[in-house]
Design a protein around this nucleic acid. Structure first.
Length: 640
RNA sequence: GCCGAUGUAGCUCAACGGUAGAGCACGGCUUUCGUAAAGCCGGGGUUGAGGGUUCAAAUCCCUCCAUCGGCUCCA
């Protein structure tokens, strides 16, 4: 007999050499049924593994995230068998579990189409119903290489594996795959699954290698959870800024300019509201604002280093026998403004902001609504300062950044620091100094951060700000980039205390990143339900019938006089239809007016998302909304 | 840029070799209504573009463009 310690600290006697499965059965039949894998002394393993005692053992079920992963990985194997049985010439490459599912990369010249998914799933169901056991066999690396000689993908996987023990898993005579494991006990335990999509993927992510087919699937412990997942996808689709942008008439795209967004009047209200707020915060933090030309002589881009590092993504044009480039960044223009006159250390730190319109020719396949465009407005700024001002300036930017994010209801953010990339300009010494300055500032602010080695901009290291939206998705928004190279290239100088000319430090920074993208993120974050201060139409007056149109117009004028963005629905519809439409348009406030309200000059208020009404005076409504707008309140409820 | 899929009315979609349709939206009329979509009538399409096959193409084939899902990329 041997002693096993369970996660709750309790101890259990088991027969020597018992497997994890037997242990689960000993604990209870429910657990045995739910068991998918085990963690023995910290090692995730198959249920068939014998327990060498004494041991700390945890039985893993689909309730554990790692259980779900094991299940999905097993499901990937079952899918692989299904695909191989339909297309015997398939060569398997690699099939891991990923967030919400799994995929399997395969090398098969015949393209798998969505119309094939059903028969793959059918075959998978057959395999699952067979409930055949996953069987692990082990051998040495050399043996495995011999066994799979000629299979370049699996040979490669073996060579990449750690340790000398190579394992294979089979769950039928017809199917065996090189795999680290672990797996669920049998194919009946792969849950409810669905093939989601198929896409191309390069082997090892290397574009010079063969394009493989990547078949994506998802798997969940139960049909109910699968359905819930599919439903969540539908929900996310409803929040999709491309869909809402169309529905709410915020922006559009046109074949005439792929990747160039057309902002509509409703979208511009959101845009301008953000700009106005952005300006007020920048003013508070001591920034001045400039605007530099979109098209500048090509020479400038040679000087800045962009031509060498980025020309394949830049737009060029020629006229009057001279070459010009459409700016992909604002900094060279900012440098020209700086150089327009002499500067003294007394002016420093000099904080210069620019809402700069930049163009970057992104590859056609990467464009995505407002998230990835070829023309966008950066909320850029360049800070010119002395080296000993860096730390304080970085701290100032961090504070400004948090203030802006919080106004939009983003509370959850984290910071990443990126270091020198392979493709870079400037000496190692300069890079080291710059990176240290960023680290020091973060340390001063007592901020935790993650380091991304080799992910910096070509001209300097950077700090990136990431926020999580209400769906817990992470977005990179802001960035602070130190640049000791550009000032030198442009010959920027300032006169120091000792009356000598020195080179200033330049800090590039953006907070929202791209306005286009930020608005896209906001649309999805709010699901189209904008807070009052951003809503294109803040209130709509809905007269019960034509008889109250006149009073409705009077109310409309009063609200407009109070700077509220409001409309009036005098269509020939019944009140129910007017309300339904206002809801579809995501109106924060619906103001129903009929003879009753007209008589005592009140409004019947209905708030977006709340299925209740109350009567409120016009003045009271104006005061309440004015306060909410000023405070940028997200909650629409009007109390009192 | 690469792989795959998809482009039909303003929007969402149907028709899948044989006269292009519906709902919503839009216009007109009726209705004047009390809290999530009243009724009738009407206008609207060289089916993304170009070429080909066919007696006949939205439908099949080719090229291009765009979009979608991924891959790669994002200074």
């Amino acid at each position: 007999m041997a002693e096993v310690t369970l996660p709750d600290g309790s101890k259990l006697e088991i027969a020597n050499g018992s497997t994890a499965m037997q242990l689960a059965a000993q604990i209870g039949p429910g657990l045995a049924k739910a068991a998918l894998a085990a963690r023995i002394n910290g090692q995730l393993t198959d249920l068939a593994s014998p327990i060498s005692c004494p041991a700390v053992v945890k039985i893993i079920t689909s309730k554990d995230s790692e259980g779900l992963e094991v299940m999905r990985h097993s499901c990937a194997h079952v899918m692989a068998e299904a695909i191989c049985s339909i297309w015997p010439q398939t060569r398997l490459v690699y099939g891991p579990a990923v967030e919400n599912g799994f995929y399997y990369d395969i090398d098969l010249d015949e393209p798998i189409r969505p119309s094939d998914f059903e028969r793959i799933e059918e075959k998978m169901r057959q395999i699952a119903n067979g409930k055949s056991h996953f069987v692990r066999t082990e051998m040495s690396k050399a043996e495995a290489l011999k066994k799979l000689a000629g299979d370049k993908y699996k040979t490669d996987n073996i060579n990449r594996a750690d340790g000398d023990v190579i394992s294979f898993y089979s769950h039928s005579d017809a199917f065996e795959d090189l795999c680290r494991g672990p797996h669920v006990p049998d194919t009946g335990k792969i849950g409810s699954f669905k093939i989601m999509s198929v896409a191309g993927a390069y082997w090892h992510g290397d574009p010079t290698q063969k394009m493989l087919q990547r078949v994506y699937g998802t798997a969940w412990p139960s049909k109910k959870e699968l359905d819930e997942f599919l439903h969540r996808l539908e929900e996310a689709k409803r929040r999709d800024h491309r869909v809402l942008g169309k529905q709410l008439d915020l922006f559009s795209f046109n074949d005439a300019g792929p990747g160039f967004a057309f902002m509509h009047p409703n979208g511009m209200i959101i845009w301008n509201s953000i700009v106005e707020f952005w300006r007020s915060v920048h003013d508070k933090y001591g920034y001045r604002e400039i605007k530099t030309p979109i098209i500048l002589n090509e020479e400038l881009w040679h000087k800045s280093g962009h031509w060498d590092n980025y020309k394949e993504n830049m737009y060029f044009t020629r006229f009057d026998e001279a070459g010009y480039a459409i700016k992909p960044m604002n900094c060279p223009g900012g440098c020209l403004v700086y150089n327009n006159r002499k500067h003294s250390y007394r002016e420093f730190p000099l904080r210069v902001a620019e809402l700069g319109l930049v163009h970057r020719h992104e590859a056609s396949g990467v464009m995505h609504g407002l998230f990835r465009v070829r023309q966008f407005t950066q909320d850029d700024a360049h800070i010119f300062c002395t080296p000993d001002q860096i730390r304080a300036e970085i701290i100032g930017v961090i504070e400004l950044t948090f203030e802006l994010y919080q106004a939009f209801g983003f509370e959850d953010f984290h910071i990443e620091l990126s270091t020198k990339p392979e493709k870079h300009i400037g000496t190692d010494e300069i890079w080291e100094t710059a990176t240290k300055a960023l680290k020091d500032a973060l340390k001063d602010k007592d901020i935790d951060y993650k380091i991304n080695e080799g992910d910096g901009a070509f001209y300097g290291p950077k700090i990136d700000f990431h926020v999580r939206d209400c769906l817990k998705r992470s977005w990179q928004l802001g960035t602070i980039q130190l640049d000791f190279s550009m000032p030198e290239r442009f010959g920027l100088v300032y006169t120091d205390k000792d009356n000598t000319e020195k080179t200033p430090v330049m800090i590039h920074r953006a907070v929202l990143g791209s306005f286009e993208r930020f608005i896209g993120i906001l649309i999805e974050h709010y699901g189209g339900n904008f807070p009052l201060w951003l809503a294109p139409e803040q209130a709509r007056i809905l007269p019960i019938s034509e008889k109250t149109n006149e009073y409705a117009k009077i109310v409309e004028n009063k609200l407009k006089g109070a700077n509220l963005r409001c409309g009036c629905d005098i269509s020939d519809e019944k009140i129910g239809a007017k309300i339904a439409r206002a809801h579809a348009d995501r109106l924060p406030y619906m103001l129903v007016v009929g003879p009753k309200e007209a008589q005592v000059e009140t409004l019947n208020l209905r708030i977006r998302g709340a299925n209740e009404q109350k009567t409120i005076g016009i003045g009271e409504f104006i005061d309440a909304t004015a306060r909410k707008i000023a405070e940028k309140e997200i909650d629409l409820a009007i109390v009192g």
